[in-house]
Design a protein around this nucleic acid. Sequence first.
DNA 1: CCGAAGATCTGCT
DNA 2: GCAGATCTTCGGC
Length: 207
Amino acid sequence: MTKQISGRGKHLSTVLNDAFFARPPDIVARELLGSRLLVNGCGGFIVETEAYGPDDEASHSFKGMSKTNAAMFGPPGTVYIYRSYGRHWCLNFVCTRASAVLVRALQPSEGLGLMVSRRSTSDARVLCRGPGNLCQALGVTNELNGLRATLPPFSLDAREDETIVVSGPRIGLSKAKDRPWRFGVLNSAYVSRPFRPAQPDETVRED
DNA sequence: CCGAAGATCTGCT
DNA sequence: GCAGATCTTCGGC
């Protein structure tokens, strides 16, 4: 599932590998929370995700493969990037059977200067808030579509701290609005929109 | 071939 | 809180 890498001194970091993504998207979406995502050294800790399943009307894969969604049918760990509303790029990681996890918000930690220069704000709370803003801050465009999430320029380290997960309906959909497949870190100031109620999800307490 | 819709964001009211 | 920007794909005629 994960691979231990020796770090300097006493710390160990754990790098996510392809097996991590070879599971249903709601599981992966929960477990990505608190992990650290970098693209060419810019990024931070994932605080908000959404899952899109194989039999999910809201998923881009629902109506079969097309020119733009082909990466979503790749093996687990494939990066799927699409353009949203003609203006924004959105970043996903493919899981099992044409499912995926949309990365919606980060708590910035690395490459602050570069991210600020790419965005029109220096406010850390909005730097990587929302899937489009996040991609702008990290320099993600469709040039990275189809690459491996487990290889450069991407880097993904498993979370080290306890993370309490909350969930709620996904955002911006016209179909399948009922699935509570938006996940976030409890009380994070960096999510794109608050979770209501801001209580732990009925089930989940990770690590 | 044309029109509508879409996993969004910003700025203005 | 809502309209507008902006572009690509797909479905209907």
